[in-house]
């Protein structure tokens, strides 16, 4: 399957292990990635806050470039998904507005076509379940993650608001990460924080609010017996992994639970080595997860 691939900024910035692990895992899923390397930042909700017309134009430009490839678009970031779906909703709602936004793209001959359900922009998680299929995924597993207890962390932007994120057509999208973990042979851990907010959006503005959220969810996952978390959102990863040592101070307890990116979890089950997946590049060490996975291979 070919996709117009939007990696987002953070996967090429502060979480390069995400970009790398996606590249490594794509062939294992028969995914051919046509990388949109000329597309701009999705705005992550921040540019929208500043100027909607600006962010809608930037994303219309990205969509137009994706549409030129003739295949559907895929992203690997919950925040990109949410921010871009928000723009797409406005672009699709009003023909005059769409024409006005498209007029900004004319000099480069780009044009966003309202595509309805013909052309979509899907997070890898949705694509796995809806296009690749859990059965097909199961068949590709060479190293079932048996005994690995994984706490899913979805990221706000792909679970809310349901009205904008295709839940009318796919009402179970907020279960997919659980299903994928199980399809890979792991155990999806049930805990309070799975669909809550990591706190990242306010890390520079309300640090206590931000890190209390991250810390609390991590603590809940630990208390529920998780070996690690897995997330389809690199921004969640920043608050849950990079900030974890600091989050400890705000919840006044030790944490130390590794957080994997979705493609890393896939990669482990599909036979890749932790090193190839950049698992040595985390702030909270992934050694224990690696040890469990090695034991699985030996068994």
């Amino acid at each position: 399957m070919k996709v117009a691939y939007w990696p987002g900024c953070v996967s090429r910035g502060f979480t390069p292990e995400l970009h790398g692990s996606m590249a490594a895992v794509a062939p294992k899923l028969d995914l051919e990635l046509i990388e949109l390397d000329r597309a701009s930042c999705c705005g992550a909700g921040v540019i929208a806050e500043h100027n909607q017309e600006l962010v809608d134009t930037l994303n219309a430009r990205t969509f137009a470039m994706a549409q030129q490839t003739g295949v559907q678009m895929m992203n690997i970031c919950s925040t990109c998904q949410g921010a871009q779906s928000e723009c797409q909703q406005r672009l699709d709602a009003d023909p005059d507005y769409r024409a006005m936004i498209n007029s900004h793209l004319e000099p480069e001959g780009l044009h966003y076509e309202r595509a309805g359900r013909e052309w979509t922009n899907k997070n890898l998680l949705w694509l796995l379940v809806e296009d690749i299929g859990l059965d097909a995924l199961r068949e590709r597993v060479v190293r079932p993650l048996e005994g690995l207890r994984v706490a899913p962390f979805y990221g706000c932007y792909i679970v809310r608001p349901t009205g904008r994120l295709g839940y009318d057509e796919f009402p179970q999208r907020d279960f997919y990460l659980d299903w994928v973990i199980e399809a890979l042979g792991g155990t999806a851990v049930d805990y309070a924080g799975s669909h809550k907010c990591c706190g990242f959006p306010v890390i520079t503005m309300a640090r206590a609010t931000s890190l209390r959220q991250a810390g609390r969810h991590l603590a809940d996952a630990i208390d529920a017996g998780a070996d690690c978390l897995a997330t389809p959102c690199p921004l969640c990863h920043l608050n849950l992994d990079l900030q974890q040592p600091d989050a400890e101070k705000y919840v006044e307890r030790e944490l130390g639970i590794p957080v994997l990116h979705l493609p890393q979890l896939l990669g482990l089950a599909l036979g890749l080595e932790p090193r190839e997946l950049g698992m040595d590049k985390h702030v909270v060490k992934t050694r224990e997860v690696q040890r469990k996975v090695r034991e699985l291979a030996a068994a």
Binding site: C9, V10, R12, G13, F14, S40, C41, G43, A44, V46, I47, E49, H50, N51, L54, L58, T204, M205, L238
Partner: peptide
Amino acid sequence: GYGHGKAFVDIVGKYGTLHE
């Protein structure tokens, strides 16, 4: 709040992608 928004928008305006 002002600084965060301005920094974000300016960085994307200058580089096209975010520089954390």
